[in-house]
């Protein structure tokens, strides 16, 4: 992987700055591969019959993947020098296979924690059923 992300500097960011949206096609392959890559072997994330048997429409994304996607969404924008300090998410409607999640975000606050200046970014990941994940990420920018 040789792509270098553009590094965003704190001076370029302020409250209200919008993040470019990120669209995730949650194909069955995506749902399964992320579940396994996060070492989550619960059948509802890779076995459609089992998922349906438990009352779900299809296999669906796991939470560890949501954390990963939220992290990626923020650092795709902020760049490789950004330090992610926290990811706090509330889980909403499921994201079933074949759905699409669109992440949107916005800088909502600038805070200081232990002498470190952090930006608070509000993130929403929405799929066809509604808000799949909503929350905040704290990052430090150079």
């Amino acid at each position: 992987m040789s792509r270098t992300l553009r590094t965003l500097h704190a001076a370029e960011v302020g409250v209200g700055t919008e993040l470019p949206p990120m669209v995730i096609e949650a194909t069955p392959t995506f749902v399964v591969s992320t579940a396994i890559a996060t070492r989550d072997f619960q059948d509802v994330h890779h076995d459609r019959d089992a998922a349906v048997g438990r009352g779900s429409k299809d296999i669906f994304l796991n939470i560890l993947t949501d954390n990963g996607l939220v992290q990626r969404f923020v650092t795709d924008w902020a760049g490789s020098e950004a330090l992610v300090r926290s990811i706090k998410i509330r889980l909403g409607v499921p994201c079933y296979a074949y759905d699409t999640i669109t992440f949107s975000g916005r800088v909502t606050d600038e805070i200081e924690v232990g002498g470190e200046r952090r930006f608070v970014i509000e993130v929403i990941g929405r799929d066809s059923l509604g808000d799949h994940v909503t929350g905040t990420v704290q990052v430090v920018l150079p």
Binding site: R3, L5, I24, S33, T34, T38, T65, R72, D76
Partner: peptide, 13 residues
């Protein structure tokens, strides 16, 4: 490596 591939993460760090 498995994780960044699956998530689609491109951060080289």
């Amino acid at each position: 490596n498995n994780w960044v591939e699956a998530i689609g993460e491109t951060n080289p760090v």
